[in-house]
């Protein structure tokens, strides 16, 4: 699994830095998902160091961390550069939205006034075909349907997330959204269920999704 990120436009990031009146900063880059998406990692960190220096920012520290989204890892990694973090006006995070929030959680007690900023947009949980080709295939709905849909997710592959497709927007197996260039998710499901001899599952009337558990804050706690 990879949390897929893309880069925000540089101007947007610099605007945020200006907005917070940042002059000195620490850069934390994600060495896992963001590295794969080329929005973080060692290269991303170097790229941002250069860009920031060119604009006259003072860089206190640049680190690449393997699990920015893991509070334990962040605690450990930030402890090692605590002096630099203290000296920084802000932390710029080259990661997904989880990474940023993980850092906020870890530093907010010690440095309540220190902003943590983000250089990326978080797009989705992605499947990797190869580097540079990532696809949304699961929306983490909380109640997986794949056993009934031939292992293809209607919530992620149907543009409307329908439980009973295809809709009238399907033409020759393609979806009305984005000019009939992408496959209709429900036709992918139909073809797959047909291939495995389970059209009985396709014929099934499915209830609307139950949002009672997933329409608000969520956590998984088993210890």
């Amino acid at each position: 699994m990879v949390v897929i990120t893309t880069k925000k436009p540089d101007e947007e990031v610099f605007e945020a830095l200006q907005n917070y009146k940042v002059k000195k900063l620490t850069v934390v880059s994600c060495g896992t998902c963001a590295a794969l998406c080329q929005t973080g990692g060692t290269e991303g960190a170097e790229e941002w160091r250069k860009k920031l220096e060119e604009k006259g920012y003072e860089i206190e520290a640049v680190i690449v961390s393997e699990d920015v989204c893991d509070n334990r890892v962040m605690k450990k990694d930030l402890r090692k550069i605590d002096d630099e973090v203290r000296a920084s006006d802000a932390i710029l995070t080259l990661s997904c939205g989880l990474g940023v929030q993980s850092i906020v959680e870890v530093i907010q007690d010690k440095y309540p006034k220190k902003p943590v900023l983000v250089s990326n947009n978080t797009k989705f949980i992605g499947m990797t075909e190869r580097i540079g080709r990532f696809y949304l295939r699961c929306r983490a709905c909380g109640d997986c349907l794949l056993n009934y849909t031939g292992g293809i997710c209607p919530i992620a592959t149907c543009a409307k997330g329908l439980m009973n497709g295809p809709c009238g927007g399907m033409v020759d197996g393609k979806c009305e959204v984005d000019n009939y260039e992408r496959d209709c998710g429900w036709i992918l499901i139909f073809n797959r269920l047909k291939a495995i001899g389970r059209l009985d599952l396709f014929s099934m009337l499915r209830d609307a999704r139950d949002w009672s558990e997933s329409g608000h804050q969520q956590e998984v706690i088993f210890r």
């Binding site: 543009a159 409307k160 329908l162 959204v177 609307a208 999704r209």
Partner: peptide
Amino acid sequence: SLTGDHTALGDMPESKPVFDLDSATLVK
């Protein structure tokens, strides 16, 4: 009961596409 053309096709594409029900579950 209709699904409805996706919001992305129309003149207010920034609108949230809801599709909580679908054309079959609305009938139901």
